[in-house]
Amino acid sequence: MNETLSMARPPNGAEVVDELKRCGVDFVVTVPDWVQIPLHRALEQQPAAGIRMLNCCTEDEAFMIAAGLHVGGRKAAVVIQNQGLYAGLNALRGVGLDAGTPIVMLIGQFGREIANFDASPRTSSRRVVRILEPLLEMLEIPYWKIERKDQVVGVSKAFESAQKRQAPAAVIFDRNMAWD
């Protein structure tokens, strides 16, 4: 019997940190996300990982700081949730899309109902969930979806895409990260 997505284990925080390290990330710029709390905890508990967290008040700030870090020769991941993308859209438009900055976003699908786990988020009963993928497509931002542990390589693929295109890329965590 095939394992359904609702039965599969999502990646935990430490596994995502490991993937960020493989990508050479040295900063996580964030407005904390409900879906990715295990990642926040893992970063707090792994100072030896060499990834510094910069906590922001708004997602606009997160996009701008990530761009500034890039100008200064550093590599950042922007950790936000779907609502944060919607809130920070004009900053992403300006400094990411128009300016051609390889900003990589890790976006949590906040609010996705369990009943939707084996279906497309586009069919979610919740607007905050179902508009995320169409919005990224309209913005011409490629994205990789992560629901299972074995999909965590999507983080590396997003960084490769951003670097190659010199443009933003996204990773969507469609389910809460695992705690262990």
Binding site: V29, E61, M64, I65, G68, G72, R74
Partner: peptide, 8 residues
């Protein structure tokens, strides 16, 4: 915050 990122 663009400047802040460069400064950091």
């Amino acid at each position: 915050t663009l400047g802040l990122g460069i400064a950091v």
